[in-house]
Design a protein around this nucleic acid. Sequence first.
DNA 1: CTAACTCCGACCTGATTAGTCCTATATTAG
DNA 2: CTAATATAGGACTAATCAGGTCGGAGTTAG
Lengths: 157, 157
Amino acid sequence: MLRLSKKTDYGLLALQYLATEAPAGVASARTIAERYDIPVELLAKVLQHLARLGFVAAQKGVHGGYHLARPARAISLAEIVEAIDGPLAITACGRRDEQCEQFGTCTVRDPLSRVKDQIFSVLQTMTLAELTPDEHAIPIVVRGRGEAGSGAPVEAR
Amino acid sequence: MLRLSKKTDYGLLALQYLATEAPAGVASARTIAERYDIPVELLAKVLQHLARLGFVAAQKGVHGGYHLARPARAISLAEIVEAIDGPLAITACGRRDEQCEQFGTCTVRDPLSRVKDQIFSVLQTMTLAELTPDEHAIPIVVRGRGEAGSGAPVEAR
DNA sequence: CTAACTCCGACCTGATTAGTCCTATATTAG
DNA sequence: CTAATATAGGACTAATCAGGTCGGAGTTAG
């Protein structure tokens, strides 16, 4: 369905949090996970991956956490998506993928590849800094994991 | 990975075949499947689906098959993709999907929705007619299902 | 030193997708 | 009429991948 994985969703949320909300630009995986109510371990894995690829830097220990290793304006959505979901591809096979069973007979490969390029450029144009919604456009709704009002309340800022 | 499903791939191939290669614009599921070396039953199901939605018209019987029910120039890629893969969505939840666990706390929903709209317009702009590669740009390579030369040979036109 | 907190990386599981099989119905050639 | 060929459509199985979990190693406060 042309969908991003949840890992990528979580990664975008985390990076956006580090870029705009985190005090001093630093936050632990736990803090971010609780902020957005997503599984801690899963987000941790995503952040680890982003650390290995140089998007964020990790600091172990008691007051450790992650912070952006590069300025938000210099990180495009395309980079993030490719980092987590792997190389952007519309079809199963690439333009030069001779492994593909249908390589010789396929007649839509090249046109679809052009479509891919266009989509890629959309993602490449938008940076992490632009991912921030307008302040007044954020509808904060109190909503617990299960029933509304149960568990740790979500802070409306 | 932001990928189209194989069903959609097959659907695009089939529609493109009907639009440009099929004699008199008519071809059976079997013919198309053999042309591109893809599973017959699977392609048949995709074509049945496209028939139900009015993209192609079916003719049963000995010299039956499918033909386009609408002109190729009037069918956008977006339509085809949504017909087979379902509504286009970048993220798991929609812009107004209050069912989403993170609806209240999510800060990337609206910006990502704008990205989705851009991608959608790319797909909406391109029609089936434009999916055809230039004649001289089609590299026809003889390639059987297993080893080269085995099984039914692929006809180079 | 020790305990609390953090990142790290391998593992498991369940949902989605791809592909197969079988039966029914319609049309046409002979 | 009958056989061959075509679509129609449901049910089933297999493979793949995303989502989620577990135990371990490093770092720092006290």
